[in-house]
Amino acid sequence: MIDSLEVEARDGTWTFTLNRPDKLNALNAALVERVLNAVEQANAQKARLLVFRGAGKSFCAGFDLSEIDAQSEGDLVLRFIRIEMLLQAIAKSSAPTLALVHGKVFGAGVDLFSVCRHRIAAPGSVFRMPGLKFGLVLGTRRFASVVGAEKARQILEETNAFTAEEALEMHLAHKLTSPDEWEWITASVREKTQALDDVARDDLYRVLSSGQSETDLSNLVRSAARPGLKERLRSYLRTGSRAA
Rank of each mutant, 00 (worst) to 15 (best):
R190W: 00
I155S: 08
F59W: 02
S58V: 09
D197A: 06
R48F: 05
L86M: 09
E157P: 03
P123H: 04
V51D: 06
Q194N: 06
D22W: 10
R222W: 13
D75S: 01
D180I: 04
E6H: 13
F113C: 03
S114R: 09
I83W: 00
R79D: 13
A243P: 04
A61I: 02
K151E: 15
I155M: 14
V77D: 07
T140E: 14
I185D: 10
G240E: 01
H118I: 06
R201P: 00
P179N: 13
R141L: 05
K175I: 03
T15R: 15
S178Y: 10
A47H: 04
A47P: 07
R142Y: 03
T215L: 04
S188W: 09
V39E: 05
G109L: 13
N43K: 11
F162Y: 09
E150W: 00
V146C: 08
K133S: 14
L50V: 05
P179K: 11
A44F: 02
T186G: 01
R234G: 05
T163V: 02
A95N: 04
M129D: 11
Y205E: 00
R20E: 07
L65P: 02
L24H: 15
G124M: 10
P179I: 02
L65N: 00
R153H: 15
D203L: 11
T97D: 03
S218K: 06
E150R: 07
K46F: 10
G12Y: 00
E157I: 04
D216K: 01
P96S: 04
G240H: 01
L49Q: 06
H171F: 11
G62V: 00
L204M: 08
E158F: 09
E33A: 05
L132I: 10
S235Y: 12
A200L: 12
R142P: 01
R82K: 12
G135T: 00
E6Y: 00
E157W: 07
T97Y: 03
T140P: 00
A30N: 07
L217H: 06
P179A: 12
E181T: 13
D216W: 07
S213W: 05
R190K: 12
L237W: 12
A164L: 02
L156G: 07
V147T: 06
L31Q: 06
S58C: 13
E191A: 09
L156Y: 02
D111N: 15
